[in-house]
Design a protein around this nucleic acid. Structure first.
Lengths: 148, 148
DNA sequence: TTATATGCAAACCCTTTGCAATCCG
DNA sequence: CGGATTGCAAAGGGTTTGCATATAA
């Protein structure tokens, strides 16, 4: 209980701190979007966040959702995920648990994976080409266990 | 010289064979789109193919370019590449030279890489989760040597 | 001949933008 | 108060679709 509460307080301050750093105001909408994005481990898209908050009675627009998410991604509070269906997904960036994704092309489910060896090999590749990696995309597409 | 000619003939037959398999007709437009896509190693987008063929005097539409590319991708004559800027790139699939990409976020240049260890690790990850890989995306984003 | 393929324009989907009204500090 | 933020609706950009016409087989 206490731990969860702490976590919430900490992440709320992460938002406040980020907004301050960017010279932006702490508004009801930004707060609610950030809370909503952190409320589940799912890979959410903008439309879904918009509708969820709307249904909950909050006065909010798609524009604000997109604008806020943009700030959050740029400041690494959020990871942006592109699975190639033309709709971006977002997930809370836990920072110390980077992961990549397996995407089932039949049911659309998204699974996570992490492999230190791959991360290391990526760094080597970049070093060889004198390329400075900022971030990466790594998705394996296929059929999940349930769908086979 | 003879080798290039052979290569052209072989790949033209690959197109014919694929169309036949799919019960589709061998048309001037499909032939030209396929030729154009194979004419360079660049990572081309649909609009560019459309304009190139138009400028060359061919009567062609965007719709046909998209419809044809679709068939080619589905039949693995072409690889589709999503670098997250909302515009799909396509490249001739040489089949025996699979590779992934480094994308410079400053100048937009795309570099290729291939690493057997990573490929192998991917297979292991999939096997562990009992996931059947069909294809994958792997892009490293960052700043290239020239842009640093 | 006749069903498939095409070009065109309109529709689509997700995302971004301009602007007047609203709100935070 | 005064500029930043918002909601709305319209615009954008890439891609897809409906339909009448053109064309391969």
């Amino acid at each position: 209980m206490r731990l969860n509460l702490n976590k919430i307080i900490i992440t709320m301050q992460a938002l406040k701190a980020t907004l301050q750093k960017e010279g932006l105001r702490y508004t009801r909408q930004r707060q609610e979007i950030w809370n909503e994005l952190r409320s589940s481990d799912e890979h959410r898209d903008a439309e879904e966040i918009f509708f969820t908050l709307r249904k909950r009675g909050l006065n909010i627009s798609r524009a604000t959702v997109y604008r806020t998410i943009d700030v959050l991604v740029k400041n690494n509070l959020l990871d942006k995920l592109d699975i190639g269906d033309g709709r971006a997904r977002f997930e809370y960036n836990e920072k110390y648990f980077h992961h990549d994704h397996l995407v089932c092309t039949r049911c659309g489910k998204i699974f996570e994976f992490h492999n230190d060896n791959i991360e290391e090999l990526q760094n080597e590749i970049a070093k060889q080409k004198n390329f400075k990696i900022l971030h990466h995309n790594h998705q394996l597409f296929g059929i999940c266990e349930d769908c086979q």
